[in-house]
């Protein structure tokens, strides 16, 4: 036998497409026996069905004439729509057959059919999300009911079971329930797309990642502010920190209750009032007394150096009490 089942199916499809202008009931009745008939023809003869029977279109024309089912006159717009739909369906089936081998199956639908239960589960999940969203609950990927994930999980279990049940029973649906189901599926897919876009936007924004840029386990995580003291134990205002490449070192964040004036980032300390060691009055004194006012000098140079100039590091040039936020600082060396 040289005729395959696929060839028979294609032939039937083309005959049906050629009869698409007939009322569906009449067409179904006319082509009811066709697959069986073609199978018998194929079993008895060599060569293709077209060799033996002519083109499907010619076959359809002959069938139509013999059955006296000419439809009578001009095909109505509805019939023409049906014909177009049938042609599209036939084209889709052709595509189905052609795509199948790419997936390693006879047809693409043969590949997709076993995945149907998976779709039922996804559908149940989407339905739970939809219910959750319809009730105005903030949902991510898990449904929530009145803010409770547990209640949401019960809802999820319910919709999953319902979806699977529906999947097992929807094959028998005809008429408007079937149409309703398709409409629901379309709505659900639309919702899924919207939800996906929403989650995707959140995932790429700061809302889900508020601590962006802070590495976990960093020993400097607990640092809120930085206080620089000069050699004399005076608090240095508006200090700037840079690494060896001239990249500003960012530590901490402004937490002052008095945040009326936000200090520029990277200018330390953010909150001079919180200096761990009592800051000196900002009036610069050329010869400060011994740093007894400060409980401890953080500077490593505990030895009394004769230097009277409060030179801290080359990178900090602002004297205490004279903030110069516009100071561009040193230019990076690279």
């Amino acid at each position: 036998m040289t005729v395959t089942g696929q060839e028979i199916a294609d032939y039937v499809d083309r005959v049906r497409a050629a009869l698409a202008d007939l009322p569906p009931a009449v067409r179904d009745e006319l082509t009811e026996d066709l697959p069986e008939h073609l199978a018998e023809v194929a079993a008895e003869t060599d060569g293709t069905l077209v060799d033996r029977l002519g083109t499907p279109e010619a076959y359809a024309a002959e069938l139509r004439t013999a059955a006296g089912a000419d439809g009578g006159g001009q095909p109505s717009p509805g019939r023409r729509f049906a014909a177009t739909r049938a042609r599209i369906a036939a084209a889709l089936r052709g595509l189905d057959t052609r795509l199948g081998p790419l997936l390693g199956y006879a047809t693409a639908s043969a590949f997709l059919r076993p995945l149907r239960p998976a779709w039922w589960l996804v559908r149940g999940w989407l339905a739970a999300l939809l219910v959750s969203a319809a009730l105005g609950e903030p949902s991510g990927l898990l449904p929530r009911l009145s803010g409770s994930v547990l209640a949401g999980l019960f809802l999820l279990a319910g919709t999953l079971l319902a979806s699977v049940w529906l999947g097992r029973h929807s094959v028998d649906l005809r008429g408007w329930p079937r149409r309703l189901l398709r409409l629901g599926t379309a709505a659900l897919l639309l919702f899924a797309l919207a939800a996906l876009v929403n989650v995707d936007q959140h995932a790429s924004s700061d809302e889900f990642a508020p601590y962006q840029g802070v590495s976990v386990g960093n020993p400097y995580d607990s640092i809120e502010d930085v206080f620089v003291y000069d050699e004399e134990g005076r608090l240095v205002h508006n200090a700037r920190l840079f690494d060896q490449n001239g990249v500003p070192i960012r530590l901490g964040y402004p937490t002052c209750a008095d945040s009326s004036q936000y200090p520029p980032r990277n200018v330390y300390p953010y909150c001079p009032d919180r200096a761990p060691f009592a800051p000196r009055p900002s009036a610069p004194t050329p010869v400060p007394p011994q740093p007894t006012a400060a409980p401890a000098s953080p500077a490593p140079s505990a030895s009394p150096t004769p230097s009277t100039e409060p030179t801290v590091t080359p990178t900090v040039s602002s004297p205490p009490g004279a903030p110069e936020p516009s100071d561009p600082g040193p230019t990076p060396t690279r």
Binding site: D33, V41, L53, Y59, L63, A66, A67, A69
Partner: peptide, 12 residues
């Protein structure tokens, strides 16, 4: 006699 003719006739 054509296949389709016979089937069509049977239907009619």
């Amino acid at each position: 006699v054509g296949d389709a003719s016979v089937y069509g006739t049977l239907r009619r």
